[in-house]
């Protein structure tokens, strides 16, 4: 469970997020939508504790994250960004292995090696394993980063990270997606969302992401958060949030709702 209570984040006098309270239960896919400048990315960064809010608090399973150490957080929280530039010629496998850094001290163990190999296969990047990351296309890079981010959250045995060893319930893992679909073609967008969806089906995974495509959000989200001007306008299921009224008000476009086989589809004028 991820909880934000009365969170406000300012830069100077400008509130990028104001008084946001939200609850994200595990096992569900939560997608944040909103126009440019709504504060979506900022909210993701605040939830992932890259940015510290001036007011309010973020709790991971009722524990305030303010005081958590970077290293502890990194073992259960990962963020997939829009695009990642690697400064020097690292191989694809070296980049994916970085996802395991929070989990080993000196050198990777056999478990880390296996996880990395499995995830490279899952994202279909095994053929690039020894290629220089810098030579890959944008879409290929993003697949590598997705493998890296999931490697960071991958668990060998459920419950191995149990709180103080006293609880039998494993701690939740938190996956944040900061507009990861921007540079992907439509096939890979859908493929990505399917993979996110299946990862999120684990009962201890909280996934919160930002997407631009309202139809993609409608199709994959369990909960949609509509953000505008740093404030939550609506939150709930797609049919609750994506109403004619809300879309007009926030996006200033005129939607038409089309019924398709998989549900609802939006067309804009």
């Amino acid at each position: 469970m991820l909880q934000a209570s009365n969170v406000t984040f300012r830069i100077g006098n400008k509130a990028l997020i104001s008084d946001v309270s939200l609850t994200f239960p595990p096992g569900q896919l939560h997608l944040i939508i909103g126009p440019n400048g709504a504060g979506k990315s900022t909210l993701i960064k605040v939830l992932a504790r890259l940015l510290r809010p001036q007011r309010g608090k973020i709790e991971y399973e009722s524990v305030d994250v303010e005081a958590a150490s970077e290293a502890d957080l990194a073992r259960r929280r990962a963020v997939l960004s829009q695009a990642v530039e690697v400064a020097f010629p690292f191989t694809v496998r070296e980049v994916v292995m970085m996802g395991r850094y929070p989990h080993f001290g000196g050198r990777p163990g056999p478990a880390d090696e296996n996880i990395v190999d499995d995830l490279m296969a899952f994202f279909d990047v095994t053929e690039f394993r020894d290629r220089d990351y810098q030579t890959l296309s944008g879409g290929e890079r993003q697949r590598v980063n997705f493998a890296r981010v999931l490697a960071q959250l991958w668990r060998l045995t459920p419950g191995s990270l149990a709180l103080n060893g006293s609880s039998s319930n494993p701690l939740c893992r938190f996956l944040f997606l900061d507009e990861p679909l921007t540079f992907l073609d439509i096939r890979h967008q859908i493929d990505f969302m399917k993979k996110v969806r299946s990862f999120t089906d684990a009962p201890d995974v909280v996934t919160v992401g930002v997407v631009h495509d309202l139809n993609l959000a409608t199709r994959f989200a369990d909960q949609i958060v509509l953000l505008d001007g740093g404030q939550v306008i609506a939150v709930g299921s797609a049919t609750d949030v994506l109403t004619l009224e809300n879309i007009r008000k926030v996006f200033h476009v005129e939607p038409t709702f089309v019924s398709v086989q998989s549900g609802m589809h939006l067309v804009f004028d």
Binding site: A48, A74, A78, V79, V84, M98, Q152
Partner: peptide, 20 residues
Amino acid sequence: AKQLNALMIGEEEATYLGVN
């Protein structure tokens, strides 16, 4: 060395990987 490697994919990403 490991933390420096993480820094090579960017400061934000390194933070996400647990680097101060």
